[in-house]
Design a protein around this nucleic acid. Structure first.
Lengths: 149, 149
DNA sequence: CCAATAAAGTTTACGGTTCAACAACTTTGG
DNA sequence: CCAAAGTTGTTGAACCGTAAACTTTATTGG
């Protein structure tokens, strides 16, 4: 068994600041979306659909782009279908596939919620942080996401 | 209604990198703790108890330090009590209070899990990021957490 | 001193997420 | 061409978190 490589005091401080910060940001964004009857997961689904051709995506592509499991997406989309935000269609090219499409109502809700949400993002995060630090954070997170598995 | 202050393309890129990065980090940490039968929430409870006098804390203090609602903490601690990681005692100075204390078994599990967890934190996050960017990220997250409500 | 208010913790019900199993279809390679 | 393996999406059950109501005890201010 190798000797554990502990974090330095400084690294630990930053790690804990990260945990606290992420929690705070999330909390504020959820609160900001509540008046629209949405949570962050649903909001992201609306965004990714709205940015796709025909406001539609295959379930598995959508699942990947919003980082939800296929199962979770199935449940979430079912609920959103009940709320008439989204509609399911068979995929023409692959008979296993299902396509989720934004309804007009879903699109209008997104258009309505987006300004408030962006304001939340600014006010909880972007506007609080020094621009240089914000850019560094971006580089850091890109490094985290970069595939090196 | 004020004109919405949209994010610049650059800000949006960073914001999305942040969302992806946080998700990845979380995922990897959860996977790393699974072999010990713990999730991140339980792990943090163990850590905060282990750093307190007598390996014990009042429920409400613990709730605040791990950023869980009192209700959630009640549920989590109940489960951990069943697993014999933690024990509940009445608070001597305030009869409303309840004190959660680490059991020997809970402490030993933490000691056992900690090296693997720290390794996860390094390998999912710290070691992937340029040290200057990591420090900047710390400043950013401290700014996010700073009370300015 | 006491009534009103606040704080601590739990409980319950509900809703969302996870996990494993499954059905339907597609791809692969022998 | 076809059997085996892989993908896609769903299902149902178990599990976990949330929110509101509630109990018990402290605190406050009139």
């Amino acid at each position: 068994m190798l000797e554990p490589r502990w974090l330095s005091a400084e690294q630990q401080r930053i790690w804990r600041a990260y945990l606290n910060g992420v929690a705070r940001i999330n909390e504020r964004l959820e609160v900001g979306l509540r008046p629209f009857g949405l949570d962050l997961g649903e909001y992201e689904i609306l965004v990714h659909l709205s940015e796709s051709e025909g406001h539609a995506l295959r379930m598995s592509d959508l699942a990947e782009s919003v980082r939800q499991s296929r199962s979770r997406l199935t449940h979430t989309i079912s609920r959103m279908e009940v709320k008439n935000l989204v509609q399911r269609t068979a995929c023409p090219s692959d008979r296993r596939g299902v396509i989720a499409r934004l309804t007009d109502h879903g699109y209008r809700l997104l258009v309505q919620a987006a300004p408030a949400h962006v304001e939340s993002v600014r006010c909880a995060f972007v506007d609080r942080v020094d621009p240089d630090d914000f850019e560094a954070l971006g580089r850091a997170m890109e490094a985290v996401t970069r595939v090196t598995d």
